[in-house]
Design a binder for these strands. Structure first.
Length: 444
DNA sequence: TCATGCGGGTGGA
DNA sequence: TCCACCCGCATGA
């Protein structure tokens, strides 16, 4: 946290130090240093993980990512499913919300959505991810040599769901409770706890501060990589808790990436993160801080239809001198749910890159590689051991489920992001254009 | 039961 | 050709 002052040209990850794309026929080989595993990647980021990293081998993500067939056996592609929320957006007494992790399995997800909101019995709604030019955020995994290359494209425009580890922990907790003789006497432990609900196994209990206030935490970068902490560098305190009456308007904070010069420039992302649809956001949506690259992009971005690929490509071509096929856009997703009246769904501000790199249809990866098919079973390394040193900056809601005997049998900390409670942001990045040239963002 | 990965296939751009 | 997405299947926890 305290580093990076004056390190304006730093990059935030090992993966960002190199100029590569997941589709490159040849990936960087001389990897001497690996990135620590990032559970909550967000933005157009790249990481290079150690091939022995169990989490990387399992292609773990905090987001609910499902496998997407890209007809490339070398590159595993996953797309984000979004988050399941209450269709009413009900708010609990403490302002917390339900943000369930969508089931990865299609059938399970359909089943999941048929369940009522455990809080208000309203229907559940899947808030799809459209953070990548109107499409779900995609993650790419590729094993090459001893490294596992990770590339993410898109910025999640929805709250974080319950993490996989939390889901698993809760499930095991529920199982234990179900098998417990005290199952019938669950206790409600405080106003925010929803243990007295019908479907506790599907309950994600996330404080309101969860999404907007989450911030990526890259503890290892502090010691291994130059890394810029925009907040600290600017002497800013972490974003304060913001209350909102609508849980479904989110201006997500980008991850450690090079995709948000606007955010990078602003030094903080706290202001536009969580919005009330009733309010007039036009100015915020077109906030020049979000789109400094294009300068007067407000009009462009505000009229931009994220579904119109041609539109944003043209926009980018005009705006970004980065190459024929390298698009750089201030478009950034601030999604209005479809059922929000008058929702300007098209108002997005995304900075996205599209690389057009041809790659040869690959033969099967050599068996020597830590291949995708043979991931050794391992317990997810949740990184909980590396909790932020400043616990005061994390907003957590601890849920303790107790047996009647009074013994705590399970303590689930629905901490939005135990690893990422501090805001850190790369102030510099480089990215390889499809044609081999590189541009950098050093000044943000 | 569900997560995960693979692969065939379709449709749009 | 690329991409998103659907589907079924297999495997393992």
């Amino acid at each position: 946290m305290s580093r990076a002052d004056g390190e304006a040209d730093c990059v935030c990850s090992v993966g960002m130090k190199f100029t590569w794309d997941i589709n490159d026929p040849k990936l960087p080989q001389d990897i001497k240093q690996f990135d620590p595993f990032q559970e909550w990647t967000d933005g157009y980021v790249r990481f290079i993980y150690n091939g022995e990293d169990k989490n990387a081998q399992r292609h773990l993500s905090g987001w609910a990512m499902r496998n997407t067939n890209n007809h490339n056996c070398q590159i595993l592609k996953k797309s984000c499913l979004g988050v399941v929320v209450c269709s009413r957006g009900c708010t609990l007494s403490d302002g917390s919300r339900l943000q369930l992790r969508p089931a990865i399995c299609d059938k399970a997800r359909q089943k999941q959505q048929k369940k009522p909101c455990p809080s208000c019995n309203a229907s559940l709604e899947l808030l799809p991810c459209r953070g990548h030019s109107g499409y779900p955020v995609t993650n790419f995994w590729r094993v090459d040599g001893t490294a596992i290359f990770f590339q993410a494209k898109g910025v999640h425009d929805h709250p974080r769901p319950e993490s996989k580890s939390e889901t698993e922990a809760r499930r095991s907790s529920v199982k234990r409770r179900v098998s417990s003789p005290f199952t019938q006497k669950r206790q409600c432990l405080g106003p925010a706890l929803l243990s007295c609900v019908e479907a506790p196994d599907r309950l994600s209990f996330i404080a309101e501060s969860n999404f907007p206030l989450q911030s990526q935490h890259y503890p290892s970068f502090q010691s291994t990589e130059p890394y810029y902490n925009s907040h600290n560098a600017l002497g800013e305190a972490p974003p304060t808790l913001q209350k909102s009456t609508n849980p479904r308007l989110y201006m997500p904070r980008p991850g450690c990436g090079y995709e948000f010069p606007g955010y990078l420039a602003s030094g903080t992302y706290s202001a536009p993160l969580h919005r009330d649809p009733a309010a007039n956001h036009s100015s915020d949506l077109c906030d020049p801080r979000v789109a400094p690259v294009l300068g007067s992009s407000s009009s462009s971005s505000s009229s931009y239809d994220p579904q119109s690929t041609k539109g944003w490509r043209d926009l980018l071509k005009n705006a970004a001198p980065y190459g024929e096929n390298h698009y750089y856009t201030p478009e950034y997703p601030c999604r209005y749910p479809s059922n929000t009246p008058g929702s300007p769904a098209a108002l997005q501000t995304i900075i996205t890159t599209t690389t057009k790199v041809s790659y040869q249809p690959c033969p099967k990866p050599p068996t020597a590689l830590p291949g995708y098919q043979s991931c050794p079973p391992a317990k997810p390394q949740l990184g909980c051991s590396s909790l932020p040193e400043d616990s005061s900056s994390s907003y957590s809601t601890e849920v303790k489920v107790t047996e009647e005997s009074g013994g705590v049998i399970k303590s689930l900390s629905f901490q939005p992001d135990p690893l990422h409670t501090k805001t850190e942001r790369a102030e510099s990045f480089d990215y390889r254009c499809p044609y081999g040239n590189t541009f950098r963002y050093d000044e943000y």
